[in-house]
Design a protein around this nucleic acid. Structure first.
Length: 822
RNA sequence: GCCGGUGUGGUGGAAUUGGUAGACACGCAGGUCUCAAAAACCUGUGGCCGUAAGGUCAUGUCGGUUCGAGUCCGACCAUCGGCACCA
């Protein structure tokens, strides 16, 4: 099936030409500066933000799904009396630009700029309330100047440092990657297997904020799932760091100790061996002459292994005896020290105690190398497998008999008192490797001088411009390194000869602070104005894909906290509320991709149905955070609906006399309430359904009141801004000349007359033995006694209670009455 | 392996948070209009029995709590997402 070639049925309706009116209104709105948001206003602010898109070339339906419903929400907030800022921009640095350049010979800068021009045009067709004066383009010097400035601030604060670390290297992209960018051992972009390499890299000390990043998750109005993922990623674990004395082969207890981290101090009496990482600094000392050969052979093997199959799924535990021992100071046992590659140097101290009785990995290892297995927690059979749960301690001297929980505390206290170790907290989170050996990114503003060492570029010399003439084909080091004019500079402090850092920054650095730039995107003297930020920040509603749960969102939180500590910001968290839109799949239920031919092109939809229909349909198709396969027919329902609205409003004589019944008014008030609640909660699908339901009740009525027309248009205005503006101007305003303050989008959300929300009568459910038998119309708030008398008379009820005795009557006011006969 | 989500008609999905299951749409069937078709409009549309009134079954499966369960509890099945040698 060729989904790309789907033909859309075109429903023609005499007068509704969405494309015509949409172009017209987009132009008028822009000329009248309708959506330009002031930085000073008496109204309360509302900062509604979407994740700025990458400048990939075309706006796909996923972008629309992010932007259109969010714009509905922003428009609703605007009509509800807020000064709403909903800005847009481009995250335009990054590898795909280089990829396109290599593949097609276009310069990344040119490719990016032409993509942006195209996407700007497409973005305008959405009919969103973007204030284009605020647009941000991350790859332009006026923006990346400030990205570099951010780097310098972090550097000054000791939060940016260069270090030789084992880094994730993507052989295809020819650059290092952050931990967060490695997914199942593969590059997040090209899915190549990532290898480990020791390279000097620039890092941001995000770990300094590990605790605060974890704690503040609680404050956030974010999806629970996202919060859990952030917590897991930070991965705090509490435990004890213990030092065991090393016993060399001559039998002497040395002064040296091997420190290790454990979260299970309750099992420490069961530690029968030690395992250290192959990269452990003490390894050389621990290896005895007899073991030297086997250990070095093992290390060689591990090195190869880590380069070739670091991610091999089932890794068997392997290791080699170093020849040395430790004393388990608690049990008194002399225990062998092994090198094992299942121990990671990057976590804890690179050493672990082996407790085979109560840890799966240790058990596997002990079985393989015939090491002692000692039971110290009762609950399983340690000869058959490890018992990893808690339980009463055994074989643990005076601690025997305690529960694991109790023992953890008592043993830790004992260890601390004896000076054997102390409580410690470890994190999964590592520092963020930000340097990239690529061209299309913000140059790291640092110079290396023979005399002065690492010298940050003075702020007045920013931006460090990315040179245009560069051979950007990847060679494993930054393309900038071969550009002599770029590399060779004078040292800013001693004027001697120096060379520039040639790595560029990870694109996630650009996106870690962009939300701070929108309030003053054209400020030339500084990245932001603190007073303006005080008004706008933090972001009130942030909407974007769930794929950024750990990357962008964590980095942004880190930046906010770091800038706060530097005195630039007064808030702790950048995004007060966050929601994720779902992912729209192709009609075949597969992820959309050009190669599968199941891509839905929003431009085609717009030219067939108009933007209003596409907007409203994206809202209507399902719960916003869910997504799912695209149904090509579904959109027609919305198109028909908008056509009916058009026909009904535009081609009907409206009675100005208020001849609607009380029932009509109640219905209207109920709808208003429902739509207001639903949009507030981003439940767009039920909001649209409620408008439809209400519309259906009067679509066949002869006359409509002006009030009804107004409410209908106002409710629909966020969803279908063009259509409603057209109808509002010609039917409600009846003026030929457009004035901004008379735009429907400058009207207030209709006030609900709460007095109409209380019902006069309600339909009550009548049950016998929990089964629905009939319904009963009773006055609102009717008493149990009254309802009971009425219900007992119902023939359908009598039929079922006849001959039985009613033992109990359950009554829920205005809800139901239930006769229980048994 | 660990953490989390989801499971409702032919389809997308509703369901006042424990109280009429299937709102609103799509699709389908029948009809109106038309020379005809499309569009539009109207009617019907969970299964089974019944001409009908009505009855009965039904929210992944099995059990439980309750007057009453899509909603709460337990077990299982299916499926999707995240993390994964973190000591």
């Amino acid at each position: 099936m060729q989904f790309g070639a789907i033909r859309y049925k075109i429903i023609t309706m005499k007068n509704y030409h969405p494309q015509k009116i949409e172009k017209k209104w987009q132009k008028i709105w822009e000329e009248s500066k309708l959506y330009e948001t002031p930085n000073i206003s008496d109204k309360p602010k509302y900062y509604c933000l979407v994740m700025f898109p990458y400048s990939s070339g075309d706006l796909h339906i996923g972008h629309w799904y992010n932007f259109a419903p969010t714009d509905v929400f922003a428009r609703f907030k605007r009509m509800s009396g807020f000064n709403v800022m909903e800005p847009i921009g481009f995250d335009s640095f990054g590898l795909p630009a280089e990829g396109a350049a290599i593949k097609r010979g276009v310069h990344p800068a040119d490719w990016t700029e032409s993509n942006i021009a195209n996407m700007e045009k497409q973005l305008r067709t959405i009919g969103a309330i973007y204030d284009w004066r605020r647009e941000i383009i991350a790859s332009r010097p006026d923006y990346y100047k400030w990205t570099q400035w951010m780097f310098l601030q972090l550097y000054k604060a000791g939060l940016a440092y260069k270090a030789k670390v084992p880094a994730n290297w993507c052989p295809d992209c020819q650059t290092v990657l952050a931990n967060e960018q490695v997914i199942e051992g593969r590059c997040w972009r090209c899915e190549s297997l990532v290898v480990q390499r020791e390279i000097a890299q620039w890092l941001f000390k995000i770990t300094r904020y590990a605790d605060e990043l974890l704690e503040d998750v609680e404050k956030l109005d974010w999806p629970e799932k996202t919060k859990i993922m952030q917590r897991n990623w930070i991965g705090r674990s509490e435990g004890v760091e213990i030092a065991f004395p090393v016993i060399y082969t001559n039998g002497e207890k040395s002064k040296e100790v091997l420190t290790f981290f454990t979260t299970r101090p309750d099992t420490v009496f069961g530690a029968t061996f030690m395992a250290i990482s192959p990269e452990h600094p003490m390894l050389k000392k621990l290896v005895t002459p007899e073991s030297k050969r086997s250990v070095s052979e093992y290390i060689e093997k591990v090195k190869k292994k880590s380069e070739l199959e670091r991610v091999a799924l089932e890794k068997e535990k392997t290791g080699v005896f170093t020849g040395s021992y430790c004393e388990n100071v608690l049990s008194g046992a002399k225990i062998p020290v092994y090198v094992a590659d299942y121990v990671l140097m990057s976590y804890g101290s690179g050493a672990v105690m082996g407790v085979p009785g109560h840890d799966q990995r240790d058990w596997d290892f002990a079985r393989k190398y015939n090491l002692d297995i000692v039971e110290v927690i009762r609950g399983g059979d340690v000869t058959k497998g490890p018992y990893v749960e808690g339980g009463p301690l055994v074989n643990s001297r005076e601690f025997s008999g305690l529960s694991s929980y109790e023992a953890k505390k008592k043993i830790t206290d004992y260890i601390e008192k004896q000076g054997l170790g102390q409580r410690k907290v470890n994190y999964h989170l590592r520092d963020w490797v930000v340097s990239r050996q690529r061209y299309w990114g913000a140059p790291i503003p640092v110079v290396y001088c023979e005399k002065c060492g690492t010298v940050p570029v003075p702020e007045k010399d920013l931006p460090v411009l990315l040179p245009y003439d560069v051979d950007f084909t990847p060679k494993g080091r930054s393309p900038l390194a071969v550009n002599k004019a770029f590399v060779n500079v004078k040292c800013p402090s001693c004027q001697g000869s120096a060379r520039r850092e040639t790595d560029t920054m990870d694109t996630f650095v650009c996106s870690s602070w962009y939300y701070l730039r929108y309030p003053n995107s054209d400020l030339e003297s500084k990245p932001f104005d603190t007073d303006t930020l005080k008004y706008w920040l933090p972001v009130d509603m942030y909407v974007g894909g769930a794929e950024h749960t750990v990357l962008h969102l964590l980095y942004s939180r880190f930046f906010t906290k770091a800038l706060r500590d530097l005195g630039y910001l007064e808030f702790d968290e950048p995004f007060s509320a966050l929601r994720h839109q779902g992912i729209i799949l192709g009609p075949d239920g597969q992820k959309m991709s050009k190669s599968k031919g199941n891509v839905i092109n929003p431009d085609e939809l717009v030219s067939t149905y108009g933007a209003d229909t596409v907007r409203a349909y994206l809202c209507f198709m399902g719960p916003y955070d869910q997504g799912g396969p695209w149904n090509p027919r579904g959109i027609e329902g919305i198109y028909r609906f908008l056509n009916r609205v058009w026909a009904r409003v535009y081609q009907t004589n409206i009675s100005v006399a208020n001849n609607t019944t009380l029932e009509d008014k109640r219905l209207m008030a109920k709808t208003l309430q429902k739509v207001t609640d639903d949009i507030s909660n981003l439940k767009f699908n039920t909001a649209v359904a409620a408008i439809m339901t209400w519309f259906n009740t009067f679509s066949s009525r002869k006359e409509l009141s002006l009030e009804e027309i107004k409410v209908l248009l106002l409710l629909l205005a966020p969803f279908a801004p063009h259509l409603t503006e057209e109808l509002w101007q010609s039917v409600v305003e009846g003026s030929n000349k457009f004035e901004a303050e008379r735009s429907i989008h400058n009207q207030s959300w209709y006030k609900i007359d709460k007095s109409y929300l209380t019902e006069e009568y309600v339909w009550l459910v009548v049950e016998v033995d929990g089964k629905v038998r009939d319904r009963l119309k009773v006055p609102y708030g009717a008493s149990e006694e009254k309802v009971k008398t009425m219900a007992e008379e119902l023939p359908k009820v009598r039929k079922f209670i006849e001959g039985k005795s009613v033992e109990k009557v359950v009554f829920r006011s205005n809800r139901l009455i239930n006769f229980v006969t048994h």
